[in-house]
Amino acid sequence: MTYLFVFISVLGLLAALGTVLARNLVHAGLFLVAFFFTVACQFVLLEAEFLAAVQVLVYIGAVAILLMFAIMLTRNVQGDMTTTTSRTWLLPALVGGLGLFFVLMFGINDQVGLKGRMTWASASTRPEIPRAGEGKPVTPRSAAINDMGRMVGREMVTRFVVPFEVAGLLLTAALVGAVVVAYREGDDAESPRRGIQPTRLHGAVTVQATNGHADGSDLPSTASVTS
């Protein structure tokens, strides 16, 4: 298990480095996907497979795709222009990043436990998760781990109901905000709307349909467009 952890961690760190260093943006996005995946693996190692599934669903399924779309929209069409790293910021970034890393390592290693709690360095065993049939008393926490989907739902409508509502509000605001921000003004005036296009091409198609298909299988919709 430790070997597995080390393997996953090394892969994850390499993927993170790749994200930061890759010159091609799509490659950086791919490395980012790999990093998300290793984080999901870490969640599985931490016995939170629900969270791992959510991680894959939201990050790889949605965020990565969104980033790829953004790369396509802000580059030339093939998206293969390379980007450079900023020379002037290289030294400050290295100093800041490595400094932060060493500070964090120092802090993690030398953390003094709060009163009555163990230190982080000495925490190497997890609280056990007794299952229902094993004779040991089932704590609420072990029940939660064994049926995490249900417990997350229950927590969301009881203890975390306010954060849940706020998150919903935030998502709605983000949705509306993203549409408002990215909406191109004057789109309607310049070109016909995306939805229904009574263009010449479409007219031709309708004519074909009228001539070709006596039964007019797709006529009602197209006819209503041109009428």
Binding site: V26, L30, V33, E49, F50, A53, V54, V56, L57, I60, G61, A62, A64, I65, M68, V77, Q78, G79, D80, N146, D147, M148, G149
Partner: peptide, 30 residues
């Protein structure tokens, strides 16, 4: 037998758009 099998299902099947995108992008063909 995953306790959160359906979420896993959705998560795993949401990988395929990524593969399709990469296939289209890497071919260098409009």
């Amino acid at each position: 037998n995953l306790p959160s099998g359906l979420i896993y299902l959705v998560a795993v099947s949401s990988l395929s758009p990524l593969g399709i995108f990469l296939a289209g992008w890497s071919s260098r063909n409009k």
